[in-house]
Amino acid sequence: MTHDHQPTRGEPRVALVTCAELPDLEPDDRLLRAPLAARGVRVDTVTWDAPDVDWAGYDLVVLRSTWDYVARRDEFVAWARTVPRLANPADVVVWNTDKRYLDVLSAAGVPTVPTTWVAPGEPWQPPERGEYVVKPAVSAGSLDSGRYDLADPEHRRLATDHLGRLGAAGRVAMVQPYLHAVDTAGETALLFAGGPTGPVFSHAIRKGAMLAGPDQPTAELFHAEQIDPRTVTPEQLAVAERTLAAVPGGAERLLYARVDLIPGADGRPVLVELELTEPSLFLGHAEGAADRFADAIVAHLPTT
């Protein structure tokens, strides 16, 4: 569809951006519509790769369920660079859609999962024992990811095959030790909504373990997750805030952020992922969350 309007000083217009597989957004993102309408904001749902969209006609373009970008990252980031008022900004999208950003955060002192990167064509010698996760550096929704017990010869073969498939497709692979606390404590996702000086903590959820074994091919956009509300600890919040403080260009530009943590071997929180592109915000799992994120969107609208 074509949108040929220009931003006005009257009714602000916001695009919530999705993918062709989810033309009406995913259910959680739909919760933003009513609070935005209540704040006098007109909301359109637009597919990121739809032709003839006048992106400059929006006061703000908000990335949401663009979950098909993984196989087309170059095209996606090129599109992001053409959108004048994109949230989160295009340079953040470029940085955050390749998980090698973990090295940047680790160098800044953020506790992260130790990661080995394997480029296409590079050899990989699997450790003799231990459980490890293999996944691509550009991925979403736990797709193309597997968990392997490397003391098992069959799992060693499957892990090597997995890396070979990724390399043959031209994809950088990442290998990380499996954090067993995810099987008991689960993964904690801390959600932040942008404020005047940077993202402000909104709420948190618990996700159950996602990977039960080797990678299994699927046509889904993402694997289903078990979600429950969670109360964060001061230590978790401190790690999340340290993570956001290390974002290149400054966290004050961010409309939203999600920080995913799992207890490490010593029980202290370790960063698994920092989601700044198209994360699920789990608005339906915390009272007032949709209103907080709607307020953040309004605060990011241009003032003139």
Rank of each mutant, 00 (worst) to 15 (best):
R81D: 11
A50R: 04
V53F: 09
R85F: 10
T116D: 08
Q125S: 15
Y58P: 00
G141E: 14
D149P: 10
W48P: 00
V133M: 04
P114I: 10
R100W: 11
G121Q: 04
W79C: 08
Y101R: 11
D144H: 15
P127D: 07
D152P: 05
L63Q: 05
A56F: 14
L150S: 13
P123S: 12
R81T: 14
V92N: 00
S142K: 02
R85M: 06
E131N: 15
G109Y: 12
D68H: 10
A87K: 00
L158K: 03
V53I: 12
A56R: 08
V94C: 10
S65C: 03
P153E: 08
D68T: 14
D98Q: 08
L63P: 04
A80Y: 00
H155G: 13
T115K: 05
E128F: 07
T66P: 02
F76N: 00
V77T: 13
W95V: 03
T66C: 10
W117G: 01
A56E: 11
Y132L: 14
Y58T: 03
N96T: 11
P51M: 12
L150Q: 07
G109I: 10
W48R: 02
T82E: 12
W124N: 01
S142P: 08
W55P: 00
S65M: 04
V62Y: 02
Y101G: 03
A107F: 09
G141C: 12
D59C: 12
V53C: 06
Y148S: 05
P126R: 08
L86T: 02
V61L: 07
Y58D: 00
Y148Q: 04
D52Y: 11
W124D: 00
V133A: 11
V61M: 04
V113W: 07
P153M: 12
A108C: 15
P136D: 08
R100E: 15
P89N: 14
V138K: 06
D152S: 15
T112N: 11
D59R: 04
A71C: 10
R157Q: 12
V93I: 15
V110K: 00
A90T: 03
A151Y: 09
Y69Q: 03
A137N: 13
N96G: 06
K99D: 05
R81C: 10
P123G: 06
L60D: 01
L105P: 05
